[in-house]
Design a binder for these strands. Structure first.
Lengths: 198, 198
DNA sequence: GCGATGTTTTAGGCGTCACTAATATTCAGG
DNA sequence: CCTGAATATTAGTGACGCCTAAAACATCGC
């Protein structure tokens, strides 16, 4: 079975693995079994088993005991899911009044169920945005993603005034906290003091 | 396990069975294994097995070799899915420009993935409609459905002028044919002649 | 260089939900 | 009333995707 083989549609599980691995290896560095297990909240043996199947399917390369890297095909599938996720999040916030910090779980389920057609219709309705409500870039339909460069807030000198580009936080509670301070993409802020987040 | 037991969420498969059984037994008449198998495009033994599990879960009552009837709990779950399906269809047509005759398959997948919250937001955005684009009634959130009475077109006398209330057709091709003749809910027509549909 | 420690994989199992093949039941016609 | 056709169920199997327990491997400190 090679890249030219006609593919069955991927299962929701497989899509989740590919997305997780993509997010864990920003520069294509290999992701470890336990990192994947931790991110997906699965046991390490479950991940080992799935990794084996995915590498047999040509979606990733696995060096036992070393780690895992997406193939081009795997990366394409991962970016497709990320595009879906981010378009859905944007649509829910812009068109259905979802609060910014509650869309993640909904998108997480819908991204596996929508058709390409629906994604394109949502994207068109939104004017084909380049970023989602968190400021994360939305890959194009043909799998291109722009890197949005931004300086992490802790590295900004006290007194500087900057625009918030992106708010990265896996944890919904943290997101709600940041939202409550109006720390959203597009906001212009001046760094006055630093406080620890407990 | 009884009705008071706290329920796990139903699987997509189970939801499909319940919906199919609901649609097959309009007046609560029992549905047969082979009818269910035919509608879901599954083998009869698959249905037999699932029916057994569902009756153990209290979602339906099964008299072996006789047929199957939904319990109140099963009917509630079925109506919930029908509500979801019809709200999704209506939203896709009204808000995303889907053609009337192409929404079914999309709704069929989405109905298993959306949250109650999203369904309510879609319904609110649409003004809580009572019927979907095919003219089928949309159950309320607490499981009430109004019967829309209508006379089948073949029973209308030649020369009479009537309003189309509902267009029931499982087959997308037939739906497209009817759409091409502008035979949609709300249309006012006069019966001039009858032609066979091949 | 070697063992303790942590990570990864293998082994074996389970639930869900499909399938085919074989068996059981129902029911109508003779 | 009995047999043949139709319908339904049981038996056995397989893919997927998860789990725990046990074994294999890697690596770090000594």
């Amino acid at each position: 079975m090679n890249a030219a083989t006609v593919r069955e549609p991927l299962t929701a599980s497989v899509e989740d693995y590919l997305k997780a691995i993509y997010n864990l290896s920003p520069e294509g560095r290999p992701a470890s079994t336990s990192d994947i297990a931790h991110r997906l909240e699965l046991s390490a043996p479950s991940v080992s088993g799935m990794v084996k199947r995915l590498s047999e399917q040509g979606l990733l390369e696995h060096v036992p005991y070393k780690g895992v890297q997406l193939t081009n095909e795997g990366r394409r599938a991962a970016l497709r899911m990320i595009r879906r996720h981010r378009i859905i999040e944007t649509y829910l916030v812009d068109r259905l009044g979802y609060p910014w910090d509650t869309v993640h779980a909904e998108a997480e389920r819908l991204e596996h169920a929508v058709s390409d057609t629906l994604i394109q219709r949502m994207a068109d309705a939104l004017g084909n945005p380049h970023a989602d409500p968190h400021g994360e870039p939305i890959p194009t339909a043909d799998g291109l993603i722009e890197e949005i460069s931004a300086t992490p807030l802790p590295e900004i000198p006290l007194g500087d005034t900057v625009e918030i580009r992106r708010v990265t936080a896996g944890d919904p509670e943290r997101l709600r906290y940041l939202a409550s301070l109006d720390l959203k993409p597009g906001a212009i802020i001046t760094v006055v003091e630093r406080q620890p987040f407990q």
